[in-house]
Amino acid sequence: MAPIISVKDLTKTYENGFEALKGINLDIEEGEVLALLGPNGAGKTTLISIICGIANKSGGSVTVGGHDITRDFRKARDMIGLVPQEMAVEVFEKVIDTVKFSRGLFGKGKDPAHIERVLRDLTLWDKKDNRIRELSGGMKRRVMIAKALSHEPRVLFLDEPTAGVDVELRKEMWDVMRELKKSGVTIILTTHYIEEAEAMADRVGVISKGELLVVEETDSLMKSLGKKVLEIELDKPVDDVPPALAQKGVTLSPTGKLVYTYDTAAEQTGITDILADLKKAGLRLADLSTKQSSLEDIFVDLVAQQKAEEDAA
């Protein structure tokens, strides 16, 4: 199937000469959730702004549903809904009016049933006649999502949907996203929270300094680049790591567990040796667990790798 969004050699140099995007290539499949992960200033918002028609590109091309975003801008933009990073709402307007306005702006005829569905899905229906200034921060964000969904887009961009919101609200936003995904909308979200990408995305694109470092299925990205952590709980906690184990890189956690990090892709994980050493040291284990390292670590590795390559070049 042809990708719903195709980005080719996209570059962006701002007027002040800053090169924010250095040749991005990216295909997005219909129906997937793609997380663009990267630190502040990586170029996530710039990329989204270009695809949505808010900023002009400097070079390369973008198509949405096969329509070029410059030549065929109407058809391309028809398919897109955008929830920008910055909160921006007409505080004096009523919720329902501003959502209807958004739909009209996209040239779609009135459809009260659709507007009601969107507002209900976002649990805003009770507030439809409230002025936006009367709503809480989380509700304002949902109004922005409602506006973006008012014209039935096939692709939804969420630029840092959970930046600066509390844990509860983040969970709520995640639920909203899951519902949206179920309805078949393609979602592109940007974030600098690893957990968010991990929790929400089918694929993750890691972006740093205007370059897309990698795009991969979330699971396989974790597997191929991931490290695992082995935690050993002893029946009697120790004060020091026995020397033989310390030599192999085992450390002591604050809770008194022995911790060993290993590369899943490596030929020899070294676990067998460690278990043997434990026995030799006369330690008995009470419990044993392994866990996948987080995208955080993966990300740190990738950026370090990129930096090493830069230094080498």
Binding site: C52, I54, R74, K75, R77, D78, A88, V89, L105, G107
Partner: peptide, 13 residues
Amino acid sequence: FIGTIYEVQSAPV
């Protein structure tokens, strides 16, 4: 000023 211009910019108009 309030930032809602993004909607007009990203609309097919």
